[in-house]
């Protein structure tokens, strides 16, 4: 069983210099406990991917420090980082990023082989993992023959094969339909809980909120209090409660809207069929 703590303190990332300088992440601090599942949400361009890349030792922070089990990995030399990524982190991507020339078993096993595992063991472990993820019948398929959900399960197997302390996922459900996306995230949650691995997910997807232990809201490169955020029931956008351009009280609940148009539509729906909103979260 792995149990590691990730501690992020006062991390900032700036891209570019001078007038083109962008503060993608500003002074972010965060701590992830072993086995914890953290969901980072936020509008497009808010710095989610940048933050995740820094957590995964893919990108170096401009300022601040990232510690994994006490090691300051943000200070490690560049050529030390692949090793850290290989052994400590599992990555899951929006567009799966499987290697097209390899079978799914090889896609999974190759990562273990990179970490120095003998081919036979790597394959055996890959087979076990893929079996566990319900892909036992597909071991020798090439990725192009799999559905999106199957591909993402292969990616999960690949992320798990080196027994990482942390699994980092960027928009893992963006290319999946909502039902499959939710199922896959539940699967990931179960595995993480069973094996006490931490998971950090970056996503826009409101439907996977229920699998997270904790949800963080990143906006403009900074965490905002989640409590102050509400979701517009019509368009699904998140809005700050205090600054919401429109609100509506109904049966003791307050609804927040991104614009007056959304509130009017909501009110219309209420009048017509007494249903609250067109989206249910």
């Amino acid at each position: 069983m792995t149990s590691s703590t990730l501690r992020v303190s006062h991390v900032t990332k700036r891209y570019g210099k001078g007038i083109t300088e962008i503060n993608a992440v500003r002074d972010v601090s965060l701590s992830v406990a072993p086995g914890e599942i953290v969901l980072i949400m936020g509008p497009s361009g808010s710095g989610k991917t940048t933050l995740l890349s820094m957590l995964g030792a893919i990108l170096k922070p401009t300022e601040g420090e990232i510690r994994l089990n006490g090691d300051v990995i943000s200070a490690f030399a560049e050529d030390h980082l692949p090793e850290i990524r290989l052994r400590q982190f599992g990555f899951i991507f929006q567009d799966f990023n499987l290697l097209s020339a390899l079978t799914i078993l090889e896609n999974v096993a190759i990562v273990a082989e990179l970490a120095g595992m003998k081919r036979n063991f790597a394959r055996k472990k890959g087979i076990d993992l893929l079996n566990g993820l319900g892909l036992g019948e597909r071991l020798y398929f090439h990725p192009r023959k799999l559905s999106g959900g199957e591909k993402q399960r292969v990616a999960i197997a690949r992320a798990l094969i080196n027994d990482p302390a942390l699994i980092l996922a960027d928009e893992p459900t963006a290319n999946l339909d909502s039902k499959i996306g939710h199922e896959i995230m539940k699967l990931l949650r179960n595995i993480a809980k069973e094996q006490n691995r931490s998971v950090i997910i970056v996503s826009h997807d409101q439907r996977i909120k229920d699998i997270a232990d904790r949800i963080l809201w990143l906006e403009d490169g900074q965490f905002k209090e989640m409590m102050s955020m509400a979701i517009d029931p019509i368009c699904g956008m998140s809005v700050e409660r205090e600054k919401a351009p429109a609100t509506l009280e109904h049966e003791g609940a307050t609804y927040y809207f991104c614009a007056k148009g959304c509130r009017d539509e909501f009110a219309d729906n209420l009048k017509k069929n007494g249903v609250v909103g067109s989206m249910i979260f």
């Binding site: 995964g56 692949p82 090793e83 850290i84 990524r85 290989l86 990179l114």
Partner: peptide, 11 residues
């Protein structure tokens, strides 16, 4: 794909 391998930790 080489980029992916690099991200995953290939030297």
């Amino acid at each position: 794909e080489y980029g992916v391998l690099k991200a995953l930790g290939a030297h």
